[in-house]
């Protein structure tokens, strides 16, 4: 079938040059991540580039292997587990993220895994003013 070696290369090249369509959702994921922080993704909430408004977008990241769903709850969303579901990494890996706009202030928050397991953010200060026996973390949003 491949009598001439050069033909093989030509066929491979022609094959590989065909246009590839990438999921256009990449665009929105890029823009969401850009809003989420200026640094490459690690753990903990990251402040977005300076914005004109008082509100800044923060990206929350948690590693939760084997979780089916993870919710971000805190002083910014009425601790409502239905309000801010976190999104798993693209191939269903253990990294979950959510982006939340925050105005200046101090907020306590936690991650709720599968509706029952509480996780604090290991990359953020622990909230010592916790009254309910489960760990919480603190994010502080500056105005200057």
């Amino acid at each position: 079938m491949f009598e001439h070696s050069e033909n093989v290369i030509e066929r491979i090249v022609a094959h590989l040059r065909r246009p590839v369509q990438i999921d256009p959702a990449v665009d929105s994921r890029v823009m969401e991540e850009i809003a989420g922080g200026p640094t490459p993704r690690v753990s903990g909430p990251h402040e977005a580039p300076p914005a004109e408004t008082a509100t800044r977008a923060f990206q929350f990241v948690v590693v939760a292997p084997r979780a089916a769903r993870v919710a971000l709850v805190g002083d910014f969303n009425d601790w409502d587990a239905a309000r801010t579901p976190m999104r798993p990494s693209q191939r269903g890996g253990p990294v979950w993220t959510a982006v939340v706009p925050l105005s200046p202030g101090r907020y306590r928050y936690a991650f709720l895994v599968d509706g029952s397991r509480w996780l604090a953010d290991p990359a953020a200060p622990a909230a010592r003013d916790d009254e309910f026996g489960t760990p919480s973390s603190v994010v502080t949003v500056g105005g200057s």
Binding site: I22, D23, V26, V30, E33, P40, Q90
Partner: peptide, 9 residues
Amino acid sequence: EEALQDAFV
């Protein structure tokens, strides 16, 4: 797609 997204960011 992950590498691409990362590159854009």
